[in-house]
Computed example of a mutant assay.
Amino acid sequence: MDRRLTPTTDRVALESLCGVIERPAYTPGHPARLTVPLADLTATPDGRRDRQVNFGADVTVIETRGAWCFVQAALDGYCGWLPAAALGHDLLPVTYRVTAPATHVYPAPDMKQREAASLSLGARLSVAGIEGRFARLATGGFVPVQHVGDGPASDPVPVAESLSGTPYLWGGNSRWGIDCSGLVQAALTACDISCPGDSDLQRDAFPAVDDIRRGDLLFWPGHVAMAMSPDRMIHATAWTMSVIAEPIPEARARIEADGTAFLGIRRPPLAQAAALA
């Protein structure tokens, strides 16, 4: 079983795995939500980052070990460790999400106030009301209404383009740093299209096609890009250590110059509705 998607530690597994994986204990798990702007999801407690989770992300806690919790993310089923201090258990209804590349949370509905926190694209929000040009969060603070929305985007390409120039970060999932699969997941998730977290999982998730259309995914070993058109793509690349757009023929020639094989084209559904909350 793929450890990234298997909700078990060496000691505790979700009850759904009883009879499938032998563990000393099984649990139904309990729900929690990320209450900090961004947190690394690590392979071991305080270990290497696999991915990141953004503010408001829902998880199922499977085991707590000291200051760390082993969780499974509701967004994509990814499993790993998060700091226990980053999780809360007051699961208010999620009504909005951040639609801008990034935004600030202010202590009052006043842009001249010193910001209390910064949130990235896709952060999930419980909005208690609108006060002028600010959304008041039930968890405290105010976010500019221009930066939030209560429905999905219609096209993942502009979402990906909004993150142009974002620094490349292995395992990153935010405006502060993102990798190739994180960019694809952020763009598709904004459109309510379910998408795994890593490029190999993304390749397995969508059907293969022969022609390139806007929104298609292009794959190489360990790398994925999104087509903006039949001849142009956007991706987070270690070549420039940033998110860039470039012609597909030029990118393919550079990537494949050392013998790296092109793995083909996959097509996500562009109208796969999912519940926001």
Rank of each mutant, 00 (worst) to 15 (best):
W170K: 08
R254A: 11
R267C: 01
P93T: 08
Q113A: 15
T99A: 14
G149V: 03
G222K: 03
P144M: 07
Q202C: 12
I130S: 02
H89W: 09
L119F: 11
Y96T: 11
R213M: 14
T240N: 10
E161P: 02
P152M: 00
G122T: 08
L163I: 13
F142H: 12
A138P: 00
R48P: 03
L17E: 08
R4S: 06
A74I: 05
L217G: 03
A190E: 12
T60C: 09
T237Q: 04
G122H: 04
G47A: 07
Q52N: 06
R175H: 13
Q113C: 14
L91P: 00
P83S: 09
V53W: 00
Q72R: 15
G197R: 15
A274V: 12
T60R: 05
D150Y: 12
M228V: 13
C180R: 02
G129H: 03
G151E: 12
M233D: 04
I248L: 15
A225I: 10
A85P: 00
Q272R: 15
R136Y: 05
S174Q: 09
G66A: 10
P249N: 08
A86W: 02
P269S: 14
S181C: 09
S120G: 13
E63V: 00
V20H: 12
A236L: 10
A160K: 04
M226T: 02
P207V: 06
D200H: 10
I212G: 02
L41K: 01
F219N: 04
G129M: 01
L82I: 07
R97W: 15
V243Y: 03
F134G: 05
A128V: 11
S154G: 14
L188G: 10
L201G: 10
R203T: 02
P101E: 09
C79F: 02
R124T: 01
G77F: 00
W239R: 15
A153E: 13
D216I: 11
W220A: 05
A274R: 15
V224K: 02
P230M: 07
C191G: 05
F134W: 12
L183G: 05
G149M: 06
T237I: 09
L169T: 05
M226A: 04
V157G: 03
T99I: 13
P249K: 10
Q202S: 12
D258C: 11
L38S: 03
P28V: 11
L270A: 13
L137W: 02
Y26A: 04
G222D: 08
D204R: 15
L218I: 13
G182S: 06
A135M: 03
M1N: 07
G151S: 14
F134R: 04
A227Q: 00
S194W: 14
